[in-house]
Design a protein around this nucleic acid. Structure first.
Length: 561
RNA sequence: CGGGGCGUAGCGUAGCCCGGUUAGCGCGCCUGCUUUGGGAGCAGGAGGCCGCAGGUUCAACUCCUGCCGCCCCGACCA
């Protein structure tokens, strides 16, 4: 590719609507352009990366026996009614106005439709079918450039099996293939066990990449690999120690003291000596939740403990239930269920609300004063806490979901009537798995992990070109000739090359563009070096530069490879 | 969908509060000359329904109303 005639519209300034690094850099490097909120065009350079990633995915999918399909994005709505997913998707599904069609947000239905009546004997399985295509979702709020779009490129695979054991095998194959794919892409990722949500099905794993631009918050242990969504991440923080002497309970006048911080300030105590109260309504009945100090209640964990309907109590209800407003509530004298976090299990000498405005109670001993108290892990885990599995500490950060594999089961086969006949002539629904990768997300995530203040840093596997060849003064005959020769020679030797042969761009301009585009190796042909038969090689990742004899270039490149 | 912000030339922006010249600047673009190892210099030039519609006014980029679009936070996210 010659930059003088290529469409690579680089931007010197940061477009005002881009905020996260990958979005900014994809725009600035001329790889994408926005057409509408969450709708992007991939320009030649960007599409090249998409194709490279797709090819890696294709190779790994084919290696586990996957067969590639090309499916319609336009689907009869009927097909989606059969599995109840028109309703399930709701507003996030695009509906065509002048036909009874929808734009496919994923392809379980279509794939199952093709399996139905064709994959009908146990002898026809296993099958792994996949596609790499555009999907459409009417996202309420697109964000992060290509990371959450209304239209995006996805690799979706579906497995068809006769038994749950065989599904396990298909699942494991995908798990391995996904690791190969993300490894080959040079991504630093980790795997989180997750609930499969509205997709239905049982076991699932998410492949995540750490990024401030992420939409999920996860807890991860570098040491043992434990990773979980913050909503379910186990907290094993050390417990408050029980003091040898238990004081008697006593009332304290605490005018205008509401928050834990105010209470600690007022009494000159540590927050660990306090028990914070939250009241929830569970199936119509109040439940008091006690947390240590300012620890937050993790409502997902609470929901897992108390099945049914749970919501925080309204201010009026608080008064009615406890006799006090928020800020003065506590366990002493309160009827009803009381649940406390493990962190303050069997603690004593605690301070909490008195259920009377402007009063707190000190000297509370849970073992002595709060009968029928129950203890659970209710905290939201925080960075630096101990890992639940090993001795290392947990890191909590934002992450982007790149891939998701899960065992679907028979939901779609049942919905659409895709059955097969087993060895005994009995009919069963096909057992399916579903496995997705956000292709444009892979690209964005790679960039999120590989950039500096000058631009993108591509490494070999995903780089749109191996070498950025820069001719500094393209009005000098010798430089033009050398560049043209090298351009061809390098390609003949298997390197992909982008040649900056622009006559009107100054040296600095070309250097900056090269750093922005970020090809792994830059080769600079300039007059001074060339007069001595030399050229310069620069590595984008380390900024390491060396002057090399022109006729030793290929040996040098081999060393670098 | 709730909250906040923004919309002025291809990009980044000033002006708007407090209405009144020909809407200004930087980058980019075009022409010419010079320049070519870290975002070149000089000279000349083109490019604007100031998001759209309505209203107020002698007069609207500026004030008011409605709509549209985009960004951020939240809700949501197979």
């Amino acid at each position: 590719m010659r930059l003088s005639s290529a469409f690579v519209p680089t931007l010197k300034e940061v477009p005002s609507d881009a905020v996260i690094p990958s979005h900014i850099l994809m725009l600035r490097s001329g790889m994408i352009r926005m057409v509408g909120a969450g709708i992007y065009s991939f320009l030649p350079l960007g599409y090249k990366v998409i194709q490279i990633i797709s090819e890696i995915i294709r190779e790994e999918m084919n290696a586990i026996g996957g067969q590639e399909f090309h499916l319609p994005a336009l689907n009869p709505r009927e097909l989606w009614e059969a599995t109840n997913r028109v309703e399930a998707f709701g507003d996030t599904m695009f509906h065509i106005k002048n036909r009874d069609y929808v734009l496919a947000p994923t392809h379980e239905e279509i794939m199952t439709f093709h399996a139905k009546g064709v994959v009908k004997s146990y002898k026809d399985m296993p099958q792994i079918w996949y596609q790499i295509q555009t999907k459409f979702r009417n996202e309420a709020r697109p964000r992060g450039g290509v990371i959450r779009g209304r239209q995006f490129l996805m690799k979706d695979a579906y497995s068809f099996d006769t038994t749950w054991e065989n599904l396990d095998a298909a699942y494991d194959l995908h798990d391995k293939a996904y690791r190969n794919i993300f490894d080959r892409c040079g991504l630093k990722y980790f795997v989180v066990g997750a609930s499969s949500g509205a997709m239905g099905g049982s076991k699932s794993e998410e492949f995540m990449v750490r990024s401030d631009a992420g939409e999920d918050t996860v807890a991860h242990c570098e040491s043992c690999g434990y990773a979980a969504n913050i909503e379910v991440a186990q907290s094993v923080t050390s417990r408050a120690e029980r003091k040898s002497e238990s004081k008697d309970i006593y009332n304290i006048s605490t005018p205008n003291v509401k928050s834990i911080d105010e209470l600690c300030e007022f009494l000159k105590i540590n927050e660990r000596e306090t028990a914070k109260s939250r009241v929830y309504i569970h199936n119509g009945a109040p439940v008091l939740i006690l947390m240590s100090g300012n620890d937050e209640v993790n409502e997902t964990k609470l929901g897992a403990i108390l099945s049914g309907n749970i919501r925080p109590a309204h201010p009026e209800e608080l008064k009615e239930i406890t006799g006090a407003d928020a800020g003065s509530i506590g366990p002493i004298g309160l009827k009803g269920r009381i649940i406390a976090d493990n962190r303050i299990k069997s603690a004593n000498n605690l301070y909490s609300g008195a259920n009377k405005n402007d009063f707190h109670i000190g000297g509370i001993d849970f073992d002595r004063d709060v009968k029928n108290i129950e203890y659970f892990d209710l905290r939201i885990i925080q960075s630096g806490e101990n890992c639940a599995r090993c001795v290392a500490t947990i890191d909590v950060f934002k992450a982007i979901e790149l891939g998701h594999i899960f065992k679907l089961g028979t939901k779609y086969a049942e919905g659409l009537g895709a059955n097969f006949v087993d060895e005994n002539g009995e009919e069963h629904p096909i057992i399916m798995g579903s496995y997705g990768i956000g292709v444009d997300r892979v690209m964005a995530c790679y960039i999120e992990q590989n950039f500096d203040e000058r631009g993108i840093i591509w490494k070999k596997p995903l780089a749109p070109f191996d070498i950025h060849l820069i001719g500094l003064n393209m009005k000098k005959e010798s430089i033009v000739e050398t560049c043209n020769d090298l351009y061809l020679e390098l390609q003949e030797n298997g390197y992909s090359v982008i040649l900056d042969d622009r006559t009107d761009a100054s040296a600095g301009f070309k250097f900056n563009d090269a750093d922005l585009l970020g090809m792994p190796i830059q080769i600079v042909v300039g007059e001074k070096n060339l007069n001595q038969g030399k050229i310069e090689i620069k590595l984008r990742s380390t900024n390491e530069k060396q002057i090399v004899e022109l006729n030793h270039l290929f040996e040098k490149l081999k060393e670098l490879k």
